[in-house]
Design a protein around this nucleic acid. Structure first.
Lengths: 340, 340
DNA sequence: CCTGGCACTCGACTCTAGCGAGTGCCAGTC
DNA sequence: GACTGGCACTCGCTAGAGTCGAGTGCCAGG
């Protein structure tokens, strides 16, 4: 596929113009707005080639060209020029966390900031429990047969669960349980706790064995299986921008997908270190999101990753700008987390 | 305004038909589908009166009639016949909480259930802290100068906050603080804690005074001022049902409003005992929601109310059905909470 | 007070024609 | 060989005219 430099320039110009105007772009308009140094006729020939190769297409026979998913892909991989953040954006990112008091607060502010800056739907995963360690486990007696189990992770996440004990326990019993549980699990990676939790049952004083057994079950559920991940979402109203042009008219499938935690996790949860992922249109595995693009990356203190964040928007989005913003926000959140 | 029984029947028929078909209803179709016992001409005369009184209107000169907000209001107040839940609905409501493990779980399941049954946007407020009492306050040392404050309310709500102390404290100090705080605040209504928190500062051992002062500040913020309320939302995808007919085309203002917690609270948070509120179209104070109706009510164990829940949809919604569902779900959630 | 009849309104739909942006192709030029 | 200007062609979009029909308001008669 012989795509010389000029053809790539043409593709880049098409993508940029289409993203900006939201209208199919023709050869004439193209030479007018960009310094391509050739005539419309030449551009037309290039366009014909680009179309043959599947990078652009014509909505109707007599209309301008529109990038295909494949075209966007090439653009993102090879053509987009890095777009530096505006000072205003930089300032916003630096200020958004002033006064954040806890993890919840940080996550909420982050997701709102992302939505606002990119003008798209923003998604932020809470620090994954799978990647956290236990900082402390607290057992609070609610009644003689009920405990509140509170788990505090090193990432700042806090999970609670009610534990319904099989029989009454005394305050001293609770102290014993608390001490044992913390001794064995404190500081451990959550992913590695299952065998330790099992072992706990054998180590406890015989009288407490039934209580510890249920406690162990709940621990397993809380730490490993259930709600393992949490997610914050913002900016859904941005989907309704752009008239009804994007998303061929109906937001419904997209809104539906966004209500499923599992789907959101798939979108932004599968992150690799130091990577920023862009999934364009059809590259998305979720059928309801074939008309959207997702830009996501991991974040965490220093070089480690504790969770993912990203944005979702129409395939015709400002990739360079969005990528820059997502990257900057992720880095900044990481810094903030590192300070804890 | 002489609205005799037949005119009211006509209004009721118009509302029912319009809600069902989503199309302006004419005199002929009306007499065909309902046993009104009179001719179309008569119905037309009645319609003219209803229109004069502002209960219905014509989208265009030569079209059928559509209820106005005022018409819906009259319908809801005086005309709607109670619609019993279907067995399937009843079953769904009874089963939705099987296996719910904690408050978070209950709230999430509730909001999803509501959205599914009513096919509308559902909103559930977590039990209001303002209406809760302190069950227990836990202080967990994170480092020598940092504590995690965990507040467990009698309604099951759990709030955490990080406390940055002005200087280091020992484990014993923390124990002292914990005991004192629980002694003074345990069992108290949150709304009544402010003076008690102030008093704490004077009661503590002089050496702990600075620590207690910051702790008190955080307590005040956590218990009374900040995040006082939390809210769960589901079913936004339902807004995109009904083509683009409802909401004159753009979901944007509505989605925007739904992202503001403050607004959601206004919608469902202002509840009075034993009342179910229906706010129709223009009756909503929020400008972005003038095209929607909100059905909301309070819920809580027994006769008390700890929070609100409700649904939001197009003004042309099935009021009797929605009202029945909202009421039933609220009652059921109350029962579940009462079991704790 | 209700009814059947009738003239009238006006949005929705169809059809046609003209416009124009945009294309593909080709012959000519550098 | 690559680029360009010219030209015929396509086809979606818009505007205008015409038709249809659901629905109305009004009126005279029962």
């Amino acid at each position: 596929m012989g795509l010389d430099d000029r053809k790539l320039d043409v593709l880049r110009a098409i993508v940029e113009d289409y993203v900006a105007t939201q209208e199919p772009v023709g050869s004439k308009a193209l030479v007018e707005r960009h310094q391509l140094g050739v005539s419309p006729a030449t551009v037309r020939n290039d366009m014909a080639v680009l179309e043959e190769e599947g990078y652009i297409r014509q909505p109707h026979t007599s209309a301008g060209r529109v990038p295909t998913d494949r075209g966007y892909r090439l653009f993102v991989d090879r053509l987009s020029r890095v777009k530096p953040l505006t000072p205003a954006e930089r300032r916003a990112i630096e200020r958004f966390l002033v006064g954040a008091v806890d993890l919840d607060d940080v996550v909420h502010r982050t997701v709102r900031l992302l939505a606002q800056l990119t003008r798209q739907v923003a998604v932020v995963q809470y620090p994954s429990l799978a990647r956290s360690s236990v900082r402390h486990l607290e057992l609070v007696p609610i009644s003689t047969t009920r405990l509140m189990l509170v788990m505090i992770a090193d990432t700042g996440r806090v999970e609670q669960r009610l534990v319904e004990l099989p029989g009454p326990v005394s305050a001293d019993d609770v102290t014993d349980l608390r001490r044992l549980v913390n001794e064995r699990l404190g500081g451990q990676k959550l992913a590695e706790t299952p065998p330790l939790v099992q072992a706990l049952i054998d180590e406890v004083a015989p009288g407490l064995s039934p209580a510890m057994t249920t406690l162990a079950t709940v621990l397993m559920e809380t730490l490993v299986e259930r709600h393992e991940e949490r997610i914050a979402l913002a900016g859904t109203a941005n989907l309704a921008r752009g008239g009804l042009l994007d998303f061929q008219g109906s937001l419904r499938p997209i809104l539906e997908a966004l209500e499923e935690e599992v789907i959101l996790l798939k979108l932004i949860g599968e992150v690799e270190p130091n990577t920023l992922q862009v999934r364009i249109g059809d590259e998305n595995e979720i059928d309801n999101l074939r008309a959207t693009s997702v830009v996501s990356t991991g974040y965490g203190p220093g070089a480690t990753i504790v969770g993912g964040l990203g944005v979702l928007g129409p395939t015709r989005m400002d990739y360079p700008g969005t990528i820059a913003t997502v990257r900057a926000v992720a880095r900044y959140v990481g810094d903030v987390l590192a300070q804890n």
